[in-house]
Amino acid sequence: MIRTRPTEQGVQAPPQNLTRRVLTSKQTRLGLIMLVTMILFAIIGPFLTPHSPTAVIAKPYASPGDGLLLGADSLGRDIVSRILSGGINLTWMGIAATAGGVILGTAIGLVAAFAGGIVDTLLMRVVDVLLTFPTIIMAILFISMVGPSRWILVVLVAIGLTPGMARVMRGAARPVMRREHVMWARTIGLSSRHILMREVLPSVTSPLMVEIGLRLMWSVVGLASLSFLGFGVQPPDADWGLMVSENKDGLAIQPLAVLIPAACVALFTIGGNLFAEGAARVIGRTEGARS
């Protein structure tokens, strides 16, 4: 027999305030700086290489010195050049895979939340089945069948990201479906597309932003792991994940050839994670009273 008096909810800031609020936290600022630095490094790097990343110019596992700042890798190629040009593939493939996975997952999640009933059940069961496939194993399976191709990798990682994304977005959208402005839109008979795009999607931007950050990191880690396993970027192209696997045998002689690319992947993902998690926390704190 409780009648709740609708209370003034925490100020629902328009989206432009979101960035400012998110950046008040130290953790997110640090994460953002790391992330942006690594992305810039990966994009500008290929233009700054002192040598060709594929040219053999020294003895395998040559120590630093003699014109080579960090020495040479297992085949005698310049490590500096390979690191500088090894991030770009990872970056664009990561971003493309994330975009694909996020769009597909959000669409499935919103439709499931909006339609409810049998559609919801069906979509979510399909998503559950997909969730049980580990992304990496599935990617390896497909790559072994059709051969390595960067676009197929992107699609596979995107599909791998979709189920989790769909689940999260469905969860975020369900309380929004019960909000009065969505119900109102239904009572005047607005189209489902209008309701989803104009009424629901803008209300779930906060979790969406955080998810984009997290999924980007997951796809970067996934792509780097695939390269490490030999199913991603193929030799002789430079790639951080691939470099770790190529040079792992010489770890004792030339540790830099493994440690630096590993550190690059780590900085990239840790930065992204710090940012996404910090943003999630800030959003949770300032919008927690909602829904």
């Binding site: 609708p6 003034e8 909000r179 009065e180 402005h181 009572t187 005047i188 104009r198 803008p202």
Partner: peptide, 19 residues
């Protein structure tokens, strides 16, 4: 749908916050 209109209880939820 045009002739019948509904006004909801909660003024904080009945408008789209991003519009």
């Amino acid at each position: 749908k045009q002739q019948m209109q509904y006004v909801f209880q909660n003024p904080y939820g009945s408008l789209n916050p991003r519009e």
